[in-house]
């Protein structure tokens, strides 16, 4: 089940939030070694104080297994603070109907890939984000994703526009835009479960046919040293 947690109902969902921050520390801090601030086993940044809307996936016993964070680009965003150099144009998009989705992660306790993890939890989170956006007058969701996620979502029928790519990180980071109206149509006609839309293992994602930027198909830099864009929060 997906829970929508905001400041107003944070008090009643303290257990979900605590688990979410701990999961983020495990996934982004420990496993992916991003430059994120983890304290007492929890990962938080400044934007967690900017009253975001969290989508938190949990099982029946309220054990958290996935999450993401939604913020309007009219307000402070991770894109504008951390991607201003690498994606100078798209990172400065600013409008109340364009939202960013960050800290997307799934951890179901198995050895499954953690970010852009393929499976029913990811599928449910994506569906919820699109559905929530549609109900709230949001036109576009922006998300930084890896190539595997782009491919997976496209296979599931979602339209994704690639607004930018940077090879400074490994794997390369794509800024993907989900046009909500077009993606919402996928919900209406019933989605191919993302689990079945997973790319065969070990193959490079095929980004042809995307209206991507020149160079977006160029997966150079995949072997470069990992470099994390996420600033350390003091």
């Amino acid at each position: 089940m997906i829970h929508v947690v905001q400041e107003w109902n944070a008090h009643d969902n303290r257990d979900l939030l605590d688990q979410m921050f701990r999961m983020r520390a495990r996934v982004f801090g420990t496993r992916l070694q991003w430059d994120v601030a983890c304290r007492d086993g929890s990962e938080r940044d400044d934007l967690d104080g900017a009253s975001p809307a969290y989508l938190i996936s949990a099982d029946r016993d309220r054990h958290v297994n996935g999450c993401c964070r939604l913020l309007p680009t009219s307000g402070p965003t991770l894109l504008a603070t951390c991607f201003a150099d690498t994606l100078p144009d798209a990172s400065q998009l600013s409008d109340g109907s364009i939202w960013e989705c960050t800290r997307f992660c799934v951890d179901d306790g198995s050895c499954a890939p953690a970010v852009g993890g393929i499976g029913p939890i990811t599928a449910a989170l994506v569906r919820s984000a699109i559905g929530l956006a549609r109900a709230n007058g949001i036109d576009t969701i922006l998300a930084n994703v890896n190539a595997a996620t782009v491919r997976m979502c496209r296979r599931a029928g979602y339209r994704i526009d690639i607004l930018g790519v940077t090879h400074r990180f490994s794997p390369s980071v794509y800024l993907a835009a989900f046009p909500v109206a077009a993606c919402g149509a996928v919900l209406d006609r019933g989605v191919v479960p993302l689990a079945e839309a997973a790319p065969p293992p070990g193959r490079f994602p095929d980004l042809r046919g995307a209206n991507d930027l020149r160079g977006a198909n160029d997966l150079r830099g995949a072997n470069e040293q990992p470099f994390s864009p996420w600033k350390k929060v003091s």
Partner: peptide, 22 residues
């Protein structure tokens, strides 16, 4: 513009909307 800049029409609208807002 989408054709010229090789980006999607939806994205062009996002940029124009953002510019209008700013």
């Amino acid at each position: 513009i989408a054709g010229i800049l090789d980006i999607s029409v939806h994205t062009v609208r996002d940029y124009l909307k953002s510019a209008r807002f700013k």
